[in-house]
């Protein structure tokens, strides 16, 4: 199984710093890839997720790079879940990365908080992606436009009576 989603090329990988490469690998592991979500949104999700990072409370913002570095090298430094080899996170296959993230997610402490936060942000960005919304049959903006006009008509009718 590929370590990255098909849309992220080796060139992209070389061009990303360590934080981005770990985040890409995290997003790729957290998000689904099968029908009806069989589209590539990993880079888009990374872009959206990174736009949230400057807003994080100070301690989280400063601690995240260290947390991502620990995640990257945890395969070499820490005992791993069954079935995961001793390798860097970004070089592990998707299933191994998921096992690592699951272990962190239920491990308590700061590691749990970091992966829970990354899960929340990644999945928020993924399921609000236009392709995911289309897969779910959702068009919130069109409904907003329709209901705004309907309310305007309703109030205008009341006012004209």
């Amino acid at each position: 199984m590929a370590a990255y989603s098909p849309g992220v090329s080796w060139r992209d990988r070389r061009n990303h710093g360590l934080n981005d490469r770990v985040l890409l690998a995290v997003i790729d592991a957290l998000c689904p890839h099968e029908e009806p979500f069989d589209f590539d949104a990993t880079s888009d999700v990374l872009g959206e997720l990174k736009s949230f990072l400057p807003f994080l409370p100070g301690a989280l913002r400063l601690g995240l790079p260290a947390g991502l570095a620990l995640l990257e090298f945890s395969g070499l430094l820490l005992p791993q879940p069954r079935g995961s080899g001793r390798q860097r996170f970004t070089r592990a296959d998707r299933d191994s990365r998921r096992r690592t993230l699951e272990a962190w997610l239920h491990g308590g402490g700061i590691r749990e908080a970091m992966v829970a936060g990354l899960k929340a942000l990644s999945l928020l960005c993924f399921y609000q992606h236009p392709s995911a919304q289309a897969s779910l049959g959702i068009d919130w903006q069109a409904r907003a436009d329709k209901l705004t006009l309907e309310r305007a008509r309703l109030l205008a009718a009341v006012a004209s009576q």
Binding site: L30, C31, H33, P36, F37, R94, R98, L105, L123, L136
Partner: peptide, 11 residues
Amino acid sequence: GLGEEHGRLMA
């Protein structure tokens, strides 16, 4: 869940 397990529920 994560990944496909999560996606099957969210579908």
